[in-house]
């Protein structure tokens, strides 16, 4: 861990292999730096969810370029620990058309308390709908539920068709 508390600092095109190596690196660092087993398990769970989320969204772009030399599947991912608090930042490109629906889902999640999140989770779990990778919209609900905090997000405009989605999670 660096003096600033940064444990993982990834910037680049994510693929399955990189995803696995970041996860195993994170697991080792959590074992070394976190004595509280419950916290370490929580953070790892949220890391898995947020990284796989990044991977699935970015993977769908294939090899397409957003602009010269920058592929659409470029992502940023940071895990840092400050005192007893973990901060995760995950950023990926997103089509403009997908921003409003995503914003709607995040705001819905942020509007719920602990019990409300649990009920929504159960409802989505049992709605019989599957996304390509199986989760079917449970990811953000699960992250909010496990972190116990609101999802802090922003969108930045990149060009007419694409934006950058930045999600910050506090655990």
């Amino acid at each position: 861990m660096t003096p600033s508390g940064v444990m993982i600092d990834f910037h680049g095109e994510i693929n399955e292999e990189k995803l696995s190596s970041i996860l195993s690196d994170a697991e080792t660092k959590l074992e070394e730096n976190e004595e509280n087993f419950k916290k370490s398990r929580k953070v790892y769970n949220i890391l898995v969810e947020s990284l796989q989320n990044l991977f699935h969204h970015s993977d769908a772009f294939g090899d397409a370029e957003l602009m010269d030399g920058i592929k659409k599947r470029t992502t940023s991912f940071i895990l840092a620990k400050k005192d007893e608090e973990y901060n995760i930042l995950a950023a990926n490109f997103i089509e403009m058309a997908n921003i409003n629906p995503l914003k709607g889902r995040l705001d819905k999640v942020n509007g719920l308390d602990k019990e409300g999140l649990r009920n929504l989770y159960k409802e989505v779990l049992d709605n019989g709908q599957y996304s390509v990778h199986g989760g079917g919209g449970l990811g953000m609900i699960d992250i909010a539920r496990k972190s116990g905090n609101k999802l802090d997000y922003t969108f930045a405009e990149v060009n007419d068709d694409y934006g950058l989605f930045i999600l910050k999670i506090k655990v």
Binding site: R41, N45, Q52, G134, G135, G136, L138, D142
Partner: peptide, 9 residues
């Protein structure tokens, strides 16, 4: 020990 939301359903 752990399961992700892809495994939940």
């Amino acid at each position: 020990e752990y399961f992700n939301t892809s495994s939940s359903k």
